[in-house]
Nucleic acid binder design. Structure first.
Lengths: 238, 238
DNA sequence: GAACACAATATTGTTGACATATTTGGCGCC
DNA sequence: GGCGCCAAATATGTCAACAATATTGTGTTC
């Protein structure tokens, strides 16, 4: 029996080896999904806008069925809403839902901060500590928000990667793609980036000294602070 | 090996059972999705088993395209894995992934406990407090695990409903449908249900007196305790 | 000129047929 | 008897035509 299994395994490996598919540039569903995700996240397609299957099928040069399939995924992630026989529209975010997304984000990012601290040697955070020391402050002073946001993304992605929890990572991803434009608007609120920077430093300090529980607590405080800023300026953000 | 046996079984079933479409009863994708979810969650379809589109299409009396659509959703929820040209198999859970699911579950249930406490009048928990006082203890004493599990589900669903956060609710749902069989096995571990009951009472007491922060803290402790039990008896659970 | 009914158009939903890849079964060979 | 190769069978992937429904446009009536 085991010999038989071995034979089968070899055969599979042999087959799988020659996977060179040439010619005919096919547009994969993943590529379409990614493109639409980016457009919706960047508000290139505004909330409430209708997505026509035919137009998208023509644009990507694929049959309508493929677009339909992608719509299914987009719907399950909450990025679009589908009404039977009436098509798909980009989900409209109201303030209430944004707060609920932030409540979930708070606990998930807190979790990731703790797990990250526990999983990797504390020295590995030194480069981020350094970056958040002088450079990030200078970005703010110079009004270079793009560089600041890059530094923010860097910290976030490193933390999630170090946490090593694909479940949490995927959930956070689905939150980011729904709120990325909100995040960008919060950062430019008066005084918010400065306060946030100070909080990030505190979180990083806790991570640097290997205190996972404190990193989680501080990260959650940071998220609550962001939520409060959002609430204070709600009329300017949404 | 077991997959092979299952294949044979399905083939036989296909021969024997006629489609038998009664009239024009249309089966919605949602119904199919729900059925498959339940089968996978209840391990009626065991992990690693292959799902054949044709068989399912014949069983539900729908075109294969519909099954395909449902597979897309199932895949995005992590319940199945699809390999190009080789079909869909039920995701196999290893211990590592279960722990990661529990880490996320811990923070999300903690969040819901807090939100629930903050959102509804504290008196509204009295019926659950009463139920967890004597009846639940009796269920355990009598070995009536079904009744105990029902009480457990009741508390959980009430908490999530009161929390009023559809994002967290959906995420927790996707965790439950992947770990429901683990939950059932943890409960019958020696001494686990008794310890759990005590912890649930503590959480409920905090909710009853309107202390959301404490409810969250206790709920998280409860989850960690469950995770420890799971770790201790890992060889018996998975 | 506004409101309604009804046809024309456009868009979404459904289906079976066809194309491609993989698994299975059989044959000759060592 | 085991191993590898080739063909048949089976399963999955793709597609474009057809059906059902919603939206738009038009003409008529009050």
């Amino acid at each position: 029996m085991s010999a038989k299994l071995l034979t089968l395994k070899n055969k599979l490996q042999k087959r799988g080896a020659r996977s060179e598919r040439s010619g005919k540039a096919v547009v994969t569903p993943e590529a379409i999904l990614e493109t639409l995700r980016r457009r919706i996240a960047g508000q290139e397609i505004p909330p409430g806008a209708k997505l026509r299957e035919q137009d998208l099928a023509a644009e990507f040069g694929v049959p309508r069925t493929r677009i339909r399939e992608v719509f299914g995924t987009l719907e399950s992630r909450g990025l679009i809403e589908r009404i039977p026989h009436r098509g798909a529209v980009v989900t409209r975010l109201d303030m209430e839902l944004v707060f609920k997304l932030y409540d979930v984000r708070e606990v998930l990012e807190g979790l990731c901060a703790r797990l990250a601290t526990e999983n990797v040697p504390s020295e590995s955070w030194q480069d981020l500590v350094d970056h958040y020391n002088a450079p990030m402050a200078n970005f703010l002073k110079d009004g270079d928000f793009d560089a600041y946001v890059d530094g923010y993304d860097w910290l976030r992605q490193r933390t999630i990667a170090a946490a090593g929890n694909p479940i949490a990572a995927q959930m956070l991803d689905s939150i980011y793609e729904r709120t990325s434009f909100v995040i960008r608007r919060i950062i430019i609120l008066p005084g918010r980036a400065e306060a946030g920077l100070e909080q990030h430093r505190a979180v990083l300090a806790a991570m640097r000294r290997g205190d996972g529980a404190e990193a989680e607590r501080l990260k959650r405080l940071n998220m609550r602070s962001a939520k409060e800023a959002l609430n204070k300026f709600r009329n300017y953000v949404l």
